[in-house]
Design a protein around this nucleic acid. Structure first.
Lengths: 200, 200, 200, 200
DNA sequence: TATGAATGAGGATTCATTCAT
DNA sequence: GATGAATGAATCCTCATTCAT
């Protein structure tokens, strides 16, 4: 993730990009069981090239996950100074769900838990999201007993919920995001039975 | 599921039960990629025995899914005549989440979509759950724009949400069930952006 | 084959007969790769019963081969005293080919070469066929340089030849038997390039 | 067979050749039941390499069959313009039998009936053989009621006949080819009982 | 004796990964 | 750097055979 030793040659960079895109598509279509050969074919390169860019298949998966997390972090940072804290949090959740929807990769979440780069990226996201959550809570548009980790965990739910449908309408996740968001509002909130989780 | 042509011999029935239990455990631990050999070993039988009871690995998975769905259906039916419709729906969701929690098998949901027995079992569950949802809506404890399918889809969410944690507290799902349940209540509900999904 | 220690119980004898018939049919349909389970199912008995009657699958195959060879031996013996030696030999070849045609089991020939019972049965057949061949040769309807072994080997050819057709007309073998029989006649015979084979 | 999209790398071509040769040997020794592992071992390559060259075991078998058929077609074409039509047909049958003798693969004939490449190759052979047969018939060295298909079917017989012997003398097939060839001659021919088969 | 459940070796095939070209 | 051939471990599944019921 941080500055690589030397910048990639132009064609190598292009290959890397194509591999990441191809992998995302293929994983979305066939799940993690998709083969490296499939991904290479989709990217239009030879199998060996995959391993030049990513030491193992797991590395490739971790890179995809990192990209997604980083994109979310960027979105959160961009919304940190927005005038309406409630709208900012909501916008973030829309972005998060929408990103997922394009390629359903929820199953990747858990996949590369051990990867240190993913861990760091996730920490960054927690920081950035924390700002949005704190501001929303302070503004009174979020229940006071909701933490950043709650929001982080619930972020995946709207899209995941629709995955139980064979061919879900593309915007259906908005319906469930609305329901969950209502559940996060202070109006009519009932006390929560369990303490919020803390991250390790 | 019940009343097969002839009842299994006692030892065969025991093996079948052990295989289903072992498979549930192993799938929960390692995902669907877990090998049949692992499952057989866990059940304490030879590899071939798995295939005597389940023609293919997919059959085994479908059988597990069927059992889970059927258990939910039974729970729903048992709650159909409960005096408090709101509590009944809530109890059902607790049972559903708790069943999931014991072995996280959310990924099995989508797995055996094509299996006809699973399809039938799922239809039954929709029927039984429909009764609970209708009663709760009629009693005014559920938003009027929520359908049975909404509840069905959201049912999986509380546990799934906690799966993003490496080692989630065993009761954490109750927290997210409470949040989602609040979102399903009529108090303070905001209009939903998308129409409810319909099943094929 | 020879007198068993004790005569089978009536139902056991029936099972044995059904197994042999079923095996013949199934082998003809699917080749030697057909499974013992298939044969048992076709015979309407349990798999274990197959092994009560035939110690191994090879034994079962050998028994079928024995039956076929014995039937041929009986036919040859029955024709040994026929008035027209040429017709007798010809009739024998027709019987041999026809027996094959009913269930194409040519591939079984080589299969149970090592079995001693098959070896004995084959020896008997060679004896009986030798009589027919000698008489035909003596009567001048067979080339003088043709031995019993030649006829024995050529016996399988007419049916086997038709096996290269996907769905051969049921009587086509008669055409090739006629051609080969013409080749065995003394009229217009050309000298043969190799000495006749001898049996071990 | 020839002119694949791109020519194989030198080592890959060598492996492919070795695999085909090894498969031929092993199939001749143990029949089609011989395992891919055995073939790989005989060829001195890893199991996976077999599947790099031949998508399935059936493909490998079909490739062998194709090679044999193509070799026969080439032989027939080479003999099409020979001065003596009778000798040409006879030479062809000698070549055909001899090719078979080196590795008895008669059982492969029927094996890959469904394969389109095999089908095409077989059609070509029928064409080329038809020329030889027609010329021989026109020259009066072949019975007038014999068709190309007759010769095609009988082509396999001389070697197959000798397979019923445990350890047949290597040239014994010449004896049976001579007998069958005599049966195909016009001298002393008796009328044939069945019409010649037609190909689909 | 018959049954059919259990066994476990063996088979075809896939696939991540390595390495010579 | 890129290629694609080779590797071999791992996987699902089949089947002859054994044995408890």
């Amino acid at each position: 993730m941080p500055s690589s030793p030397r910048p990639l040659r132009a064609d190598a960079a292009r290959n890397r990009r194509q591999l990441l895109d191809a992998a995302e598509t293929v994983f979305a279509e066939r799940g993690l069981a998709a083969s490296v050969a499939d991904i290479a074919a989709r990217a239009g390169v030879a199998k060996g090239t995959v391993f030049r860019h990513f030491a193992t298949k797991e590395d490739l998966i971790a890179s995809i996950v990192c990209e997604h997390i980083t994109a979310l972090t960027d979105a959160a940072k961009g919304l940190a100074g927005a005038p309406d804290p409630g709208a900012a949090l909501r916008d973030f959740l829309v972005i998060a769900a929408d990103q997922r929807r394009q390629h359903d990769l929820t199953f990747l979440q858990t996949a590369s838990d051990g990867d240190p780069a993913v861990g760091r990226a996730r920490d960054d996201l927690h920081c950035a999201l924390g700002v949005l959550v704190d501001r929303a809570r302070d503004a009174g548009v979020l229940r006071p007993d909701i933490t950043e980790t709650d929001v982080f965990l619930l972020m995946c739910a709207p899209v995941h919920v629709t995955d139980n449908l064979a061919d879900p309408p593309p915007m259906l996740w908005r319906r469930y995001l609305a329901i969950i968001f209502d559940g996060l509002r202070p109006e009519g909130a009932h006390p929560l039975p369990e303490p919020p989780p803390t991250l390790p």
